[in-house]
């Protein structure tokens, strides 16, 4: 069977590879019925970029932001801690503080 990756939500700019992928291999994005070329080797369960992501743009998985790119990421790049910043504080903690402050509307 060909190498596959799963795009969980239509709005996601990353997909999760379902088998180990080597540099140059084509990967089928199951939901889009579309293939892309892996630019580097990626382990099972790790993320592959399926859209260009500029430095500073949000990484979208499950249809929601999960982190921010710290460099330009091309389609087929591996997306992980080396090129993504954890912005939980900004996404989550700031939201909950504001939620408390704003009160019931």
């Amino acid at each position: 069977m060909e190498k596959r990756a799963i795009q969980i939500d239509k709005g996601d700019n990353v997909a999760v590879v379902a088998q180990p992928v080597d540099t140059g291999e084509t990967v089928l994005i199951v939901e889009k019925a579309q293939t892309i070329k892996a630019l580097e080797s990626i382990r099972t369960g790790h993320k592959i970029a399926i859209a260009p992501i500029a430095n500073g743009e949000l990484i979208i998985k499950y249809g929601i932001p999960i982190g921010r790119a710290t460099q330009d990421i091309a389609v087929g790049n591996w997306v992980h801690v080396h090129n993504v910043e954890d912005i939980t504080e900004e996404l989550c903690n700031r939201y909950t503080k504001e939620y408390r402050q704003r009160g019931k509307q």
């Binding site: 999760v16 382990r43 099972t44 369960g45 790790h46 993320k47 990484i59 998985k61 499950y62 929601i64 932001p65 999960i66 982190g67 997306v79 992980h80 801690v81 993504v84 954890d86 912005i87 939980t88 996404l91 989550c92």
Partner: peptide, 8 residues
């Protein structure tokens, strides 16, 4: 295993 951030 491929998880990058706490939100994820």
């Amino acid at each position: 295993g491929g998880i990058t951030t706490l939100v994820e």
